[in-house]
Write a protein that binds this DNA or RNA. Structure first.
Lengths: 161, 161
DNA sequence: CATGAAACACGGTTCTC
DNA sequence: GAGAACCGTGTTTCATG
């Protein structure tokens, strides 16, 4: 079900180019790939319908918005039952500081990527929104020194050209 | 320097809407915010020039590309010196399995978000690309059960409307 | 290739300081 | 009176059948 869509080299090249700049026009895309613009449009529509392309996101600089400090919070939720973790997840997702949230294997159940103003703001966030809630058994905070984006996402075995 | 740009309510609303769908036209944007389309264009250009908007990214579904398993790898690099960590970072960024890479505080220096085919593929990745390299002192692998995106990124104090 | 729409540049106008 | 912000229009480029 996951890989129900067949991706030929043209699709792969389109995905690779659009990951560099999602605003590339179909005209430029067509010129780079070597097909007609209408074909490009068809391919992208098909990739969107097929769920390969989930959407177009804006990449923002949190520091430019006054959130100069980023951190990862490892959170243990105990007891780890559905009626507790559902509300926990929704509450964390709604926090203005939250960037993304993961449910993981291992001793720490959740990992939260947050962007805050400074260390004092981080302390406030951890105390008021995490450790003060009774379902939160433990929080471990790690600051992010630096982060990097990686190469384009491609299927296994696709040459990175 | 980070917050040199003043963001009024119109800018904030534009950022909020564009985070929902980065392909919203200036016309629709203008109608939603209540200003002229040309003004919208001016605002977005200013946000791009000011570095608030870093770019436009494509959101893809790794599972639909045949990478159905995601994991986080915590990596200790020892000794933690510049001449070792520079090449390590570049090597990890170039792996087709890597999605993002963080340099963190705490006992584990790096966190790598990877997308692989299955558990066997993950084992191969950890053994061949991490533990077999002499600068890698320790790797801890955690699988990702589920992940969530969070609300739009806004400056602290901005009402989430 | 043709049509309709969107992006973009420009000039006019108003409001504020 | 000077500056900035906003708005409407005209031209070019693009999406789409």
């Amino acid at each position: 079900m996951a890989d129900s869509l067949t991706l030929d080299p043209v699709d792969l090249e389109i995905l690779r180019l659009l990951q560099n700049d999602a605003r590339t026009t179909y005209r430029d895309l067509a010129a780079a790939v070597g097909v007609a613009p209408s074909t490009c449009l068809d391919r992208v529509s098909r990739l969107r319908r097929g769920g390969v392309i989930l959407g177009h996101a804006l990449r923002l600089d949190p520091a430019k918005l006054g959130r100069s400090l980023e951190a990862l919070l490892s959170v243990q939720v105990r007891p780890h039952r559905r009626e507790l973790i559902g509300p926990f997840v929704e509450r964390v997702r709604a926090l203005p500081e939250s960037l993304s949230l993961f449910h993981l294997t291992g001793p720490d159940d959740y990992l939260v990527h947050v962007a805050v103003v400074d260390a004092a703001d981080l302390q406030r966030l951890v105390l008021d929104e995490f450790t003060s809630h009774k379902e939160v058994a433990r929080v471990e905070t790690r600051l992010i020194f630096q982060q990097w984006s990686c190469g384009p996402l491609l299927p296994p075995g696709a040459a990175a050209t």
